[in-house]
Write a protein that binds this DNA or RNA. Structure first.
Lengths: 205, 205
DNA sequence: TATTTCACGAAATAATTCTCTCGTCAATAG
DNA sequence: CTATTGACGAGAGAATTATTTCGTGAAATA
């Protein structure tokens, strides 16, 4: 009666399939309505499973969010601190590096701004969302640091990081400028910020 | 049996008092938890009235939000398009006007950024919040227009308005710079933006 | 004073949500 | 083939919410 060993072989496929369906349904609903506004029952319905099945796979909302996050991270490809160096490989001039930074940020936010907005809305209610966003922010800051180099003041880096935030990108994006012009504007702002942050500095031409 | 006229004289005071209590309780709860996350029952409990009373005074969430908005508008004192001219009265130089603009925006957001964040979170769910924010945005844009004067390009105005958005202010505010430095930075960014937006354009002195 | 009006809140109703228990059944083991 | 395992979903139970009905009492009328 006790402990006959039981391996899930073919059953494991079906199991993973339902798990996948749940995660995708959750991601879709979170995208449409936000995280906190989505119920287990809605998820179950859209995934075509019973509520109990959702619970079995993800006993807490946090686990569900984590699974979604892993899923979404793949599509977003957020900047990773450990990759920051290679992004600017071979670029020596400050101007070039800032343009590269602007292009990198723009491409990332184009992929991920919508999701970042979703996550930000409930980050104070769902700790996992907060952790997720912190990682993203760390990646962005690493990009900024790498772009301006090691000799820069902390004040400059923090100011530029603030301007590199997704909220600023979103505000600028509403202007609907053509991509090339948009990135030029962003690089210009970052350049300007680097001048502003150092007191007693004039704006470099 | 029909229609004897009945004036609420002394009763009107008590009536307004409960209405006021409801509005204040709502504002507090919206501030703490957000608009969409607050229930009628919570409001009734905090106001010390029955749920039915909340319904009688405000049959829909929209009416409740409008009443709150009027309340909050007084504390926020958002910039009004019709007052934009007087804000810059007597200031001729562009530099001075931009500093005034930065100071005005900073003071306003200091009063109202928290509420603007609350409203923005649910603006797509509650039409009244969207209308409220549109009005605020119109006031900010009017300030920007007045600051740079009539001869400026539309592109410049739109870029500066984007930078004048509350989301940018919030991102910069996290740096916790001293007030004077903060406003200098903001004015510098706006100045920079005016240069970026007009390729081959000189700004009017 | 006697009567009418109406704001108020207790409580009822209906709808949703969360969360778990349990029987079913296909895949697995012997 | 027979017995066992464990994923699944129907559905129950508890809790919370939205919304309304109705009796009460104080203010207003006459």
């Amino acid at each position: 009666m006790a402990g006959r060993k039981y391996q899930l072989r073919k059953r494991a496929e079906g199991l993973d399939a339902t798990r996948e369906r749940i995660v995708e349904a959750t991601a879709a609903l979170h995208y449409e309505q936000g995280v906190a506004a989505t119920s287990y029952i809605q998820i179950a319905e859209r995934a075509g499973v019973g509520p109990a099945t959702v619970y079995r796979h993800f006993p807490t909302l946090g686990l569900l969010v984590l699974a979604c996050g892993a899923h979404i991270n793949e599509a977003m490809q957020p900047p990773l601190p450990e990759n920051a160096k290679t992004v600017f490989a071979g670029l020596g001039m400050r101007q070039q590096r800032l343009e590269r930074l602007a292009a990198e940020l723009d491409a990332f936010y184009e992929r991920g701004a919508a999701w970042l907005g979703i996550a930000a809305r409930d980050r104070d209610r769902v700790p996992e969302l907060d952790g997720f966003l912190r990682q993203v922010e760390a990646g962005v800051e690493a990009l900024v640091r790498e772009a301006v180099g090691a000799g820069s003041s902390e004040a400059m880096i923090r100011l530029m990081t603030a301007l590199a935030d997704v909220s600023v990108w979103q505000s600028l994006k509403r202007l609907e400028a053509p991509p090339a012009e948009f990135r030029r504007t962003m690089a210009g702002l970052l350049d300007c910020a680097s001048g502003l942050a150092a007191p007693g500095h004039a704006n470099p031409a």
